[in-house]
Design a protein around this nucleic acid. Structure first.
Lengths: 363, 363
DNA sequence: TAGAGCCTGGACAACGTTGTCAACACCGGC
DNA sequence: GCCGGTGTTGACAACGTTGTCCAGGCTCTA
């Protein structure tokens, strides 16, 4: 008896069965079989199918086998949407970042994914393209999908739109940049300290006129890094000329123009500090085309940075750790830990490779 | 009268209302308000709320305002899970790739995201980590969430597990590598042609002994590229020594070992062809440490490749176009286009930068 | 052999939304 | 004053699943 049942579940047999059930309503193409269909085919009740699918006890091996056979024959797959609706939790979290393809954020994305996976959750991530409206739209879309938690790399400065969501129980953690106008967990890199160390490194190698090219002033990390720059200069008692500073979009054209400008004139800068990886990539190209060496320290590491000549000296952030820390914090919240929001700041690391140790060029 | 109603819905008033409704069941912390709650508060029927939320016609401005006020006061957000359950379509697609953080796949991911966004769909992407079981697990999890379509960069070679899903109407497109044992749309780069061109380029610059280091032999692109290598050598009438060939994991240690081996001995290779970006990154480092120049062409472009000295000559694939093409194909399917599965092959591009034009070193 | 207790299985409601349909009020024209 | 039409609104079922609860059959013991 059992053997016969087993053979019925053979894929080939499954196809054959489609034909002989033409009389009763049969799932059409584009329609998925439901537990009801499985139950009908196996000749059992709906709940019994549910029990089998979820591995709940209280089903005889014989019945279970019949159900399993019906499942494979029909190609049934549980509808998680309905399951979630019933159970309340979605076992998924959302991640809003600036650009999925950015070499800094992609590893962060991956790190969050791994933590989510370890907790049995699915990650849904999307790009805000540095647009506050799009960030909001995306975050709220994720909330509408009822993600259990949200990790956000802010593009905007006002996150009060998340208040109802947070009040409703959506755990929320901000990464890389702090939240605006709401109180929430934040995981950051020490942008200020990193930039200060990087600039101090240049100063230690004899530079006095140092340029700073960073991202748009609205971006927290950009202003923090500029603050670090100013602190290092002030610590060394060096004056800062406004012409050495430039915050703005990181489009290659602008960065190129600014770098060229700072390197021209009677008293050019002898070193540059690049505020992030996109800026660094452009600045490296500008410098490469110059006869006179220019020292450079960049914020964020780059692939192949060690192979340039000179090697690229950078302030490295640990994107993976940033993502992992944020995700772990999120899941601790989801596990019910209730403590006041915390601000975690991860240290950066100076990676010495050559470009930051070049001496100032003679005037 | 109307004015009074409006004021009742004012957010501040909303708080006050919480207190005076202590008698009837009130949403607790962690519980989201539903349309029923909104309807009760606005003093209208459930369906009217639905109409307002979905911008359907047939609601007077007065009623609509009352509902809107109740919505903001309660912080209501539509539960898309329930909506999806009712409507059937989820307006979301899934993407299974090897590694979200891989510099080749991350832009592909982003490109798919943009197309999805343009079609009003959400993208859920995840990493298979080159593990067939994990690929399967992830793809089926996405199907259980009822994504409307699926884009897969295969890790395994048997995708029959997707047959029930495809039969049930989940549009499926494979990218970068062909599907295994099922008939489906595929979008590929011309790995064979690209590798053949790259190796021919080395041959044209005088090389006769050329090494090939690629990914594991189970991976379609790896074998295709090796086939391209063989074709170029055969076209030039050159013999191939098995010692010059190495397919295997792209872990830096193995690649380093193999490269060093090929460059040693009495008749070392004078040029190397690297089968993908990870291999290239390691080979560049090996070569950089050698006194005698070794020519190199890599498959896949790398950031900063132009800044190495010599610049890195590569066979570039357009990951963005690959992703965009696949996504557009998927949405065409979702729009109901019914035609036999198609195989699209995108051309590669030889980018000459120096490393591939080095002449063979003297023996 | 009767009663107690256990095991298996199924009927039913509920999750939050949308589609269907019918009720109702109001308007203008006869 | 009545009728049909129009425009607004709500009651109800359904989407596919899971939790609750109860029925029926079985075994075991007195």
């Amino acid at each position: 008896m059992l053997d016969v049942t087993r053979r019925t579940a053979d894929p080939d047999e499954g196809q054959a069965t489609v034909a002989d059930t033409a009389s009763r309503p049969q799932p059409r193409y584009g329609t998925r079989p439901t537990m009801k269909d499985v139950a009908a085919r196996a000749g059992v009740g709906l709940k019994t199918v549910s029990r089998v699918v979820n591995g709940e006890p209280g089903v005889t091996p014989d019945t279970e086998q019949r159900v399993q056979d019906a499942i494979t024959a029909l190609g049934f797959r549980r509808n998680d949407g309905a399951r979630i609706l019933r159970k309340g939790r979605t076992a998924s979290i959302g991640l809003v970042l600036e650009d999925l393809a950015d070499p800094f954020y992609a590893p962060l994305n991956r790190a969050v994914e791994e933590v989510a996976r370890a907790h049995g959750a699915l990650l849904i991530s999307g790009s805000s393209a540095e647009d506050p409206d799009r960030e909001r739209e995306l975050a709220l879309a994720l909330c509408a999908r009822r993600v259990d938690g949200l990790i956000v790399i802010p593009a905007g400065h006002d996150h009060r739109y998340l208040e109802p969501e947070i009040a409703a129980g959506v755990a929320t953690v901000f990464v890389d940049r702090p939240a605006g106008l709401i109180d929430a967990d934040v995981v950051l890199s020490d942008s200020f300290g990193g930039a200060r160390d990087g600039v101090a490194h240049l100063i230690a190698h004899g530079h006095r006129r140092i340029g700073f090219i960073g991202d748009r002033p609205g971006i927290h990390t950009a202003t923090e890094r500029l603050r670090g720059y100013r602190a290092a200069m002030a610590d060394a008692g060096l004056p800062v000329d406004d012409a050495w500073l430039s915050l703005g979009p990181t489009a290659p054209e602008r960065v190129r123009t600014e770098a060229v400008r700072m390197l021209a004139g009677p008293r050019p800068v002898t070193a540059l500090f690049a505020g992030n990886n996109r800026v660094t990539a452009t600045v490296v190209r500008v410098i490469a085309g110059r006869p006179r060496p220019v020292a450079l320290v960049g914020f964020d590491d780059l692939e192949l940075a060690d192979l340039l000549s000179p090697g690229l000296t950078v302030i490295a952030q640990d994107a993976v750790r940033l993502g992992r820390t944020a995700a772990e914090r999120l899941f601790r919240r989801l596990d019910g830990v209730d403590e006041p929001p915390r601000r975690v700041e991860l240290p950066t690391r100076l990676v010495v490779r050559g470009s930051g140790e070049l001496p100032p060029a003679e005037d």
